[in-house]
């Protein structure tokens, strides 16, 4: 897919909370310390953090990098599966905090782990059609796994924000995008339920691998591009193994996914996962580099994007905190503090 007018990313920003729960702590409490750990550790939000506060910080960095008048932003779209309210948009809180209100679209997007890239696709359409000069798309989550479940090792907090604008102002231009969805119930959560259900191994082959490969292949075919034409690639990262495996299946080398592969250190940030992989990759990219980004959201679908980095990257990058600065700001906590911080401890 390509919009009528060429568009690109003009600003981006990441956010990861300060606390880390080592996977070994989960194994200590639930598996007698004996388990194959899917990540080294995961990020945990502080007591005063949620998807709105984290989205605000990432969006502030994106705005700082973009250097545009917030009043020219025509949409604020926040993708998450952990919006603080069941009814009341996260996006209006973000829009208010950034001075984007009142003449703007604002809404929350939901599609498990691809809610953020869905917002990004829509931003490309909105800006590319001329309906808005700029649009802000955010993928951010404070994901929860049931205590003792396999997801507890990885369900983490973090994400990234992107301001989409005209290609002439971009630090990375969209060469094209593609979306691929089917009704595949690999992971879901019913209303009023606190924790999601997942289909264990069913989350792999028919879900993650099928949708990512289909979207990536279709986009590369549309663009006449091969894996080796891209400097970097980012795939949704629910654990360390899946993105490495899908990269190999598609013909990408380990070095191509290395800068964006953060899951081992921060866990799976759900709607933020592929988007924070992209922000870490942009932190490392040089003008002329091409980047392939492919998300995956359960339910299920993938959005694929091809980007070409421009000369503007270096100066814009220096205007805000790098993804790595948040990743390396870490305070490890034990399972007890994790239970308190994630409000699993009932006081009444």
């Amino acid at each position: 897919m390509k919009p009528v007018k060429d568009v690109g990313i003009i600003g981006y920003g990441a956010y990861v909370p300060r606390y880390r729960l080592p996977a070994s702590e989960v194994a200590r409490v639930w598996k007698n310390g004996e388990d194959v750990l899917p990540v080294h550790e995961k990020s945990v939000p502080g007591l005063d953090e949620d998807t709105a506060t984290m989205a605000i910080e990432a969006a502030r960095s994106a705005l700082q990098r973009a250097g545009v008048d917030p009043q020219l932003i025509g949409a604020v779209w926040v993708g998450s599966e952990s919006h603080p309210y069941a009814v009341k948009p996260t996006s209006t809180i973000v829009a208010e905090a950034l001075g984007i209100v009142p003449n703007t679209l604002a809404g929350d997007w939901e599609f498990a782990c691809k809610a953020g890239t869905e917002a990004l696709q829509a931003s490309i359409g909105l800006v590319g059609s001329g309906m808005a000069r700029y649009a802000l798309a955010i993928g951010m989550d404070t994901a929860q796994g049931r205590p003792g479940d396999a997801l507890e090792y990885t369900a983490a907090a973090g994400g990234a924000a992107y301001i989409v604008g005209p290609a002439e102002e971009a630090l990375a231009v969209f060469e094209g995008s593609f979306s691929y969805v089917t009704d595949t119930p690999d992971f879901f959560r019913r209303p009023y339920q606190h924790y999601p259900q997942h289909g264990s191994r069913f989350t792999g082959e028919p879900a993650y691998f099928k949708h990512i490969q289909a979207a990536a292949k279709a986009l590369m075919e549309e663009l006449g591009a091969r894996p080796e034409d891209f400097t970097y690639a980012v795939f949704h990262q629910p654990n360390i193994k899946f993105p490495q495996q899908v990269a190999k299946m598609l013909g990408f080398r380990p070095e191509q996914i290395k800068p964006g592969l953060l899951v081992g250190e921060i866990g799976n940030t759900y709607a933020g996962s592929s988007l924070i992989g992209l922000s870490a990759t942009l932190d490392a990219a040089k003008p002329g580099d091409r980047i392939l980004l492919v998300s995956f959201g359960s339910g299920a679908g993938s959005d694929a994007f091809a980007l070409r980095v421009t000369e503007a990257i270096e100066e814009r990058r220096a205007r805000a905190y790098l993804t790595r600065e948040y990743v390396s700001r870490r305070k490890p906590i034990d399972y007890g503090l994790y239970v308190r911080y994630r409000r699993k401890l009932h006081m009444h």
């Binding site: 502080g46 007591l47 005063d48 953090e49 949620d50 709105a52 506060t53 605000i56 910080e57 603080p84 309210y85 809180i93 905090a97 205007r319 805000a320 905190y321 600065e325 948040y326 700001r329």
Partner: peptide, 27 residues
């Protein structure tokens, strides 16, 4: 900008300014 407090389980969430140690002062 952080969560200041919640007005119980059903009430609104109040957000506001807090301060944290400066991450990097060269910015």
């Amino acid at each position: 900008t952080r969560k200041l407090r919640e007005e119980g389980e059903e009430g609104q969430i109040i957000y506001g300014y807090k301060f944290r140690p400066l991450l990097r002062n060269t910015l």
